[in-house]
Design a protein around this nucleic acid. Structure first.
Lengths: 230, 230
DNA sequence: TCTCATGCCGATACACTGTATTGCTCGTAT
DNA sequence: ATACGAGCAATACAGTGTATCGGCATGAGA
């Protein structure tokens, strides 16, 4: 029995851990959106059987949780500026940028409570930014408000972006010219304010829209915070 | 060939229209969440074959769009108050209430651009509320900001509500007592601000949380609007 | 009134999903 | 050397969205 007769030993299963699994899932989602993430495809990308993943997660939703938490790590800035308001601003913008890199994040944002280490770290950073500027309850309300705005604004931006991509037109062109449904509805005269907005409104790019709204919210928050210190 | 021998004529297919389909889908979603809505189940509830629905919609996503638009009808108030700010407040609160009646709405809110008649009507109402109080662009930014906040806040509220329901505990009790993961994380000392928030923060009910954040945002918006009229 | 055409409906089919179960195989400990 | 135990692959199942197709019932035209 020479070596040549004997078959190679069966390849040991490639080692796995959550990090690798999550990385594969994120890669799939980045390429084809959340719906491209299936247990089978993730496993295949790791040369593993589908059921193997269930040793590391117990449900697909948990995989999504891990993906979100992983991306939260991209949000944390290296160092926090002393100014609380600026810190919040940066965190919001970094969240938006993360969502632009990983559009599927928009589908998950705000969908489930964050409990992963990076999610908690982000929460900590936001709270810490405002810590001491007011009593705890006010600070919490402020943080909730700002992050609610961010979530909503990011979701809408990504939604519009997808719609534009699907039609191949910018929202601007589409609304005005070849969006047959919308033009028809507007032509009914039942939506005068909306019509004015569509035709007379100058369209600003998504980033400045996000930024100005955010600044307004931050203004409001700042106004409420400057009252009673801790 | 007596009557008794002859079978009854085949029952004519029950008449269908989008309204009925959407109603059935909403009923299913109200009972079992969005994931309980499947083409087969909707069809079954209407005594129709699954494929029949594809005469009225061409994809399941479109069904979701129709569902969202249907619920938007619940949002429109009977009459708008003259005060623009109050109008926005009411619209936001009504959106929240709709989401509490139809929790699945939280999953869809902000996920796709609204183009249905009711969605457009809501957009019209929000824009109209602020019409004339500032130049169009400022008004648009204001509307976007407020609705971004609403979307985000509603999403988070529903997410928390589900989490509480899943554990059978209130968020408060859970965080403090038996949320083993969170308590462990907080005990590491890596999240001081978060710890303080969890333990020293008084928990307010979701409605007031939503309301105060909304009022802040409205304050901010009002401040920006009072500048230059149309 | 008979015939033909047409549009719509149901059945079937396909590829794919998340996950429960089962039995085997291999490394480790006795 | 043997027993054990963990973890993996294979199989299986119930369900999903949707394309395709064959037939039937209904309407129009003669």
């Amino acid at each position: 029995m020479t070596v040549w007769d004997r078959p190679e030993p069966p390849t040991r299963p490639v080692p796995l851990d959550r990090e690798r699994i999550v990385a594969a899932a994120i890669a799939l989602a980045d390429e084809g959106g959340l719906e491209a993430v299936s247990v089978r495809k993730v496993a295949a990308r790791l040369d593993a059987g589908p059921m193997r993943l269930y040793g590391y997660i117990s449900t697909k939703e948990e995989l999504f949780d891990l993906m979100v938490d992983e991306v939260q790590a991209e949000i944390l800035p290296e160092e926090q500026p002393g100014d609380g308001r600026e810190a919040l601003r940066i965190l919001a913008h970094r969240t938006r940028q993360a969502a632009l890199r990983h559009e599927w994040l928009a589908d998950l944002l705000g969908g489930r409570p964050v409990l992963g280490p990076n999610g908690l770290a982000v929460a900590e950073a936001t709270l810490a930014a405002l810590d001491g500027l007011a009593d705890i309850d006010t600070v919490m309300r402020a943080v909730e408000t700002v992050s609610a705005y961010s979530t909503g604004a990011i979701r809408r931006e990504i939604a519009n972006l997808r719609a534009e991509r699907a039609t191949g037109l910018s929202k601007h062109d589409w609304q005005r010219a070849s969006g047959p449904h919308l033009t028809r509805m507007l032509a009914t005269g039942r939506f005068p304010a909306l019509t004015k907005a569509v035709y007379d409104g100058t369209d600003v790019d998504a980033e400045t829209s996000f930024a100005t709204g955010l600044d307004w919210v931050l203004d409001a928050v700042a106004a409420k915070l400057t009252r009673p210190p801790t």
